[in-house]
Simulated assay, not measured.
Amino acid sequence: MSERYRTFVPVPPAERDELRRRAVRVLVVGRSAAGEEVLLFEDTDPGVPGVSWWMTPGGGIDPGESELEAAVRELAEETGLVVTADRLVGPVARREVVHGYSDQVVIQTESFWLLELDRFQVDIAGHTEEEQLTIQQHRWWPLAELATTTAWIWPAELVPLVEAGRAGGAVVELGRQEESTVPVEVPTGYDALVLAGGRARRLDGASKPEVELRGRRLVDHVLGAVTGADAAVVVAPETLVLPEGVRRTLESPPSGGPVAGLVAGLAALADGRTPGQVTVVLGCDAPFVAGALPRLLAALAADPQLDGAVLADTDGRRQWLSAAYRTEALRRALGSSDGRDAAARAVLGGLRLHVEPARGLEAVDLDTWDDIRAVQS
Rank of each mutant, 00 (worst) to 15 (best):
A344Y: 00
G272D: 03
A358F: 00
Q277G: 14
A267V: 05
V246S: 10
D271T: 03
A346G: 13
G245D: 08
R359G: 08
A229Y: 11
V355R: 05
G350C: 12
Y325F: 14
R273A: 11
T249V: 08
D230S: 13
G265Y: 08
A267F: 03
S336T: 15
D315T: 14
D307L: 04
P275Y: 04
E356T: 03
Y325L: 06
S252F: 12
L330S: 14
S336Y: 11
P237V: 09
P258C: 10
R247M: 07
A232G: 15
P253W: 12
D338Q: 06
A229R: 11
L223H: 09
S255Y: 15
D341A: 15
D341Q: 14
A324L: 04
L223N: 09
R332H: 15
L300N: 14
T327R: 14
L330D: 13
P294S: 02
T239C: 13
G283A: 05
G261Q: 09
L293I: 07
V259I: 06
R247Y: 05
L262P: 07
T279I: 04
G265A: 07
L223V: 05
V233E: 07
A229D: 09
V234F: 11
L296A: 06
G257M: 10
A229N: 13
Y325G: 05
D341F: 12
G261Y: 08
V310Q: 02
A346I: 11
G276F: 04
G276M: 04
P254W: 09
T327Q: 12
A301T: 15
L348N: 14
P254Q: 07
L348S: 14
P258W: 10
A343D: 15
A225I: 03
E328L: 15
R317F: 06
A324E: 01
L250D: 13
G335T: 12
G291M: 01
R248P: 02
Q319R: 07
L306S: 05
Q305R: 15
L296H: 07
R247H: 09
P254Y: 06
A270K: 01
A343T: 11
V259P: 08
V246A: 11
L293Y: 04
A299M: 06
A292Y: 03
G308M: 02
E251Q: 13
A232T: 15
T327G: 13
L282Q: 03
E251H: 08
V235W: 10
G316K: 00
L311Y: 00
C284D: 15
P357D: 00
S255G: 13
C284P: 07
R248L: 02
P254I: 06
L293A: 02
V289A: 00
A292N: 03
C284W: 09
E356D: 02
D307V: 02
P287W: 01
A264F: 12
E356G: 00
R317N: 06
S255I: 12
G283F: 02
V263T: 10
G265C: 12
V281H: 03
S337K: 13
G228H: 06
S252H: 12
A302F: 11
G257E: 08
L297T: 08
V234R: 07
A358D: 01
R326T: 01
S252C: 10
W320H: 01
F288K: 00
V222H: 03
D338R: 12
H354P: 05
G291Q: 02
Q305S: 15
L353N: 10
